[in-house]
């Protein structure tokens, strides 16, 4: 009995530690994504970017955080007070929940421990991600509605219709990957991409699903409300979009959660299409297991960079173009991709 209790408490401590580490890493990466975004924007626009706070401006996120926390926190008089507070809270909560099922490496052995580098290996991991992605819209909708401002309401309505539309194509492109790997677990999907073809091409799903990857990536841009799909916070039309009435750290939570979403989407793209913690030449021993997190974070950072690159390169869509792309191009394409994948599996075994 006591051995069982000891085992259970060891599991609880291990998982709590993993959750805490993931939480801190997520917040750190989100904070430094804001710095990265400004530096990337500056580079693409031939400027210097932030360079006052600390060497090369690397303390800029701390300065921004201090500013956000110390500004006046204003709640409009005619707003729905509790829902106004719930909105940003729900948004950042949902954004932080998604990382629980992403495998960051194989396992770590040492100091008498055998630790899975994943918070929870549920057998429906990819559906868990889809579920929380679909819940992400509530924070925006509640916040935008509770502000009692027509610009905020327009932003909220745009966000919800956009997210519903792009979730469909995203789910359909995921189905093709599930058809190939035969599992819904993200660890299973990542493990299925170990090894190489012909000795040098890594067995990543992106080579089997190029169309699916493009659809998924476009949908990820739309789901995270990033340019060129950032219509919900389109400054030229809607002042500030759904967060027009927000100030101080409530505004900070909305902006911060967007960067968390970008990090998580990049991690999911790396796991589902780019082999996760696998890279050519990996050997399933514990030493290489330690390399896993380095590899997946490198891939994730690359995709965060691509997100920023696209934001500072492409102009914003018009709203009807966005809906047209979602419903009349991406959904038929992803259904076609699903049929092709099914036919391919049927023919090639």
């Amino acid at each position: 009995m006591s051995a069982l209790l000891l085992f259970i408490s060891a599991v609880i401590i291990e998982k709590t530690a993993l959750v805490l580490v993931m939480f801190l890493i997520t917040l750190g990466i989100a904070a430094y994504s804001t710095y990265g975004e400004r530096k990337v924007a500056a580079f693409l626009q031939d400027r210097l970017g932030p360079d006052r706070a600390g060497p090369w401006g690397i303390l800029q996120p701390l300065a921004d955080g201090a500013k956000m926390f110390t500004k006046e926190d204003f709640i409009p008089k005619d707003s729905n007070k509790w829902l106004f507070i719930l909105g940003p809270g729900a948004f950042i909560f949902v954004a932080l929940m998604t990382s629980a099922v992403i495998p960051w490496g194989t396992y770590f052995t040492g100091f008498g421990l055998n630790v899975d580098l994943q918070v929870a290996d549920v057998n429906i991991g990819i559906l868990y991600v889809m579920g929380f992605v679909s819940l992400g819209v509530y924070g925006i909708m509640i916040g935008g509605w509770a502000s009692n401002n027509k610009y905020s309401l327009f932003g909220a309505i745009r966000a919800s219709s956009q997210m519903i539309s792009y979730e469909l194509a995203m789910g359909l492109s995921i189905i093709s990957v599930i058809l190939i790997t035969g599992t819904l677990s993200l660890r299973g999907i990542a493990d299925g991409q170990a090894g190489t073809w012909l000795g040098f091409i890594p067995q990543w799903n992106v080579f089997l699903q190029p169309l699916g990857f493009i659809i998924f990536f476009v949908c990820a841009l739309a789901e995270t409300n990033r340019a060129p799909f950032d219509l919900p916070e389109c400054e030229t039309e809607l002042v500030g979009g759904y967060h027009t009435e927000y100030s101080a750290m409530k505004l900070g939570s909305f902006l911060f959660a967007e960067y968390i979403n970008m990090f998580i989407s990049s991690a999911v793209i790396s796991t589902v299409y780019f082999g996760g913690y696998n890279f050519p030449g990996i050997d399933p021993s514990w030493l290489w297991g330690l390399m896993g997190p380095v590899v997946i974070f490198a891939k994730t950072f690359f995709f965060i960079f691509v997100f920023m690159w696209i934001r500072w390169t492409l102009p914003r869509f018009r709203y009807d173009q966005l809906m047209h792309l979602g419903w009349k191009s991406l959904i038929p394409l992803s259904i076609l991709n699903m049929l092709l994948t099914g036919a391919g599996i049927l023919c090639l075994g």
Binding site: G131, S134, L135, M141, I157, E167
Partner: peptide, 13 residues
């Protein structure tokens, strides 16, 4: 929660 209630909320808004 992810689809039907979003539509409900959408219509109410």
């Amino acid at each position: 929660a992810g689809a039907i209630m979003v539509l409900f909320l959408f219509v109410l808004m």
